[in-house]
């Protein structure tokens, strides 16, 4: 597994705007991700969470503003930002083993060594299941497979699109525990989520999105700030 080196860079977005067929999805979004932080990105469905993650990874090009990793535009350093997609976008019945799925994290670079693969699988607790087919795993194990694939990439920043959706509470706790370990090891994690209330306390920071950044701060500060915005608060309770 590739560990984040000392030169972990800040991911920074300034004045981001994006529209689908003229319909604005995001406007004037500014944020910066600190290395070693676990940040939640919350908002109602359609608030622009997935769009923002795709912009931050460089898969979408903003119509205004820009994204930088350190001093470089994101388009030049996409490999250093890993995006873990929503589970609904994966074909879980595809004939593939857990090991082969994780190895896809290095599809563009030199082949991953067995040691790197085993280390990533070990880290997410899936080494004993490495030879199983992907569709033989539980939902939580499948999500951990995707996380291991992100860890194989030479990425210091992990963007996770609703990783805790449609998995049971114990699996969710396990996944959040893994994310915390990764943040403590120096990774920057931005996790889109429908969590709300006390469930946000596991994160270092919470960003509330509704086409633009509505609130940004520690979980308690954000809860306090949003107490007056009851309509948005209601929407966020997923």
């Amino acid at each position: 597994m590739r560990s984040p080196s000392a030169e972990v860079a800040h991911l920074r977005a300034e004045g981001l705007a994006y529209a689908y067929d003229g319909k604005p999805a995001l406007s004037n979004v500014n944020l910066s991700l600190e290395p070693g932080s676990l940040t939640a990105l919350v908002g109602a469905n359609g608030a622009g969470k997935s769009t923002l993650l795709h912009l931050l990874q460089g898969q979408l090009t903003p119509q205004a503003g820009g994204v930088w990793l350190g001093d470089q535009p994101i388009q030049r350093s996409r490999a250093r930002v890993a995006l873990m997609p929503q589970r609904g976008r994966i074909d879980w019945s595809f004939p593939i083993t857990v090991r082969e799925m994780v190895a896809l994290g290095q599809v563009r670079g030199p082949r991953t060594t067995c040691c790197e693969l085993d280390a990533a699988l070990q880290r997410v607790g899936l080494l004993p299941l490495a030879s199983r087919r992907l569709d033989a795993l539980s939902g939580g194990q499948q999500q951990r497979t995707l996380l291991a694939r992100a860890l194989i990439q030479p990425a210091k920043v992990l963007l996770l699109d609703e990783p805790c959706a449609a998995i049971d509470p114990p699996a969710r706790q396990q996944l959040l525990g893994l994310m915390r370990q990764l943040a403590d090891a120096g990774y920057s994690l931005l996790v889109s989520s429908h969590d709300w209330g006390d469930a946000l306390d596991v994160y270092d920071r919470v960003i509330v999105l509704d086409g633009r950044v509505k609130a940004d701060g520690t979980p308690s500060a954000v809860r306090h700030a949003l107490a007056t915005l009851t309509d948005l608060g209601n929407h966020c309770c997923g």
Partner: peptide, 8 residues
């Protein structure tokens, strides 16, 4: 297995 991931 993951068209979005492949593009990403």
């Amino acid at each position: 297995v993951d068209p979005d991931g492949a593009a990403a």
